[in-house]
Design a protein around this nucleic acid. Sequence first.
DNA 1: GGAGTAAAGGATAAACCAGTCCGTTACCGG
DNA 2: CCGGTAACGGACTGGTTTATCCTTTACTCC
Lengths: 164, 164
Amino acid sequence: MLSRPCTYAIRALTYLAMQPPGKLCGSREISDSEDIPNSFLCKLLLDLRRKRLLRSHKGTGGGYELALPPDKINLLLIVRCIEGELAFTECILEDKECSARGECSLHDSWLDLRNQLVHFLETQTLADLVRTRQKQQAGSTGDRQRERGSLEDQSSDLSIKPSA
Amino acid sequence: MLSRPCTYAIRALTYLAMQPPGKLCGSREISDSEDIPNSFLCKLLLDLRRKRLLRSHKGTGGGYELALPPDKINLLLIVRCIEGELAFTECILEDKECSARGECSLHDSWLDLRNQLVHFLETQTLADLVRTRQKQQAGSTGDRQRERGSLEDQSSDLSIKPSA
DNA sequence: GGAGTAAAGGATAAACCAGTCCGTTACCGG
DNA sequence: CCGGTAACGGACTGGTTTATCCTTTACTCC
């Protein structure tokens, strides 16, 4: 449904969204925590930086941080960064685009569904994912995050905007 | 969205659904008409035959025909033949299945959407696709289907409700 | 039964995507 | 300004998907 790189990107960004503002995370930290192949993640992070979804800092103590507040980054944005702008524009039955109506036998009913998918991705933001994750972790073990104390602050914090 | 083999299969079956009952079509005829690589199509047709969606006949005058009336073959059936029974059961963010709730941060909202997709595929039958195609061809050039006369009979037949 | 035709199916090849490697560049602290 | 660190980015690998080739099997017609 979503490509592997896409899911990696979403998970990496979610991880970053859970960090206290200003905190930089190295690619290794992210890939270890999220169980993503490091070298591959680096490429994705590079893409995301080029598309201005995150900022990077080289050298000692460097790393990545979100370039936007988590509630301003929706999944569609991420998917389009990774898959290209044409994600979800092509036809379900042919290779071509056929955005015009009536070009393939499924088109009209399919368009509906696709719009729903796009809308779904558009309304789900990193802030939403962070919230869900925190709920899950609170519900289950809830001890993997203990070393960072900022989770509570953030969940109240996410609806506003930080960042430069 | 749908894999290439899936779209090939759907188009091939749609082609067959447009034939008069009893007519056999060779793999070459189908692949030429639908612009699908012939050798690859043969494999797909074989799969579809094994799953009892179509019947094949060897030898002179042989070929393929649908094993069921077009309004009894929905897209989900076809997709599952080609992709396997587990199509659309996996999670959007992880590799695993996580059909149980709350296992990934997107799960609940995603389930909704996935159910809609499955429902969409389930309600669209070959008969529907044939109808749409015929409308399109009538609208545009409308001369490529002239040699077969049975189109009208079929379309009156198709409007009955399938499902379940 | 033999020639011809068409599906069956295994072996193989090309293309694409996911993932790795490794050298380079840039920044930091001393 | 030097060594360490971490992002950058190109070249490469491996596996899966997509597609082809070719031999075998089965059927029809003569």
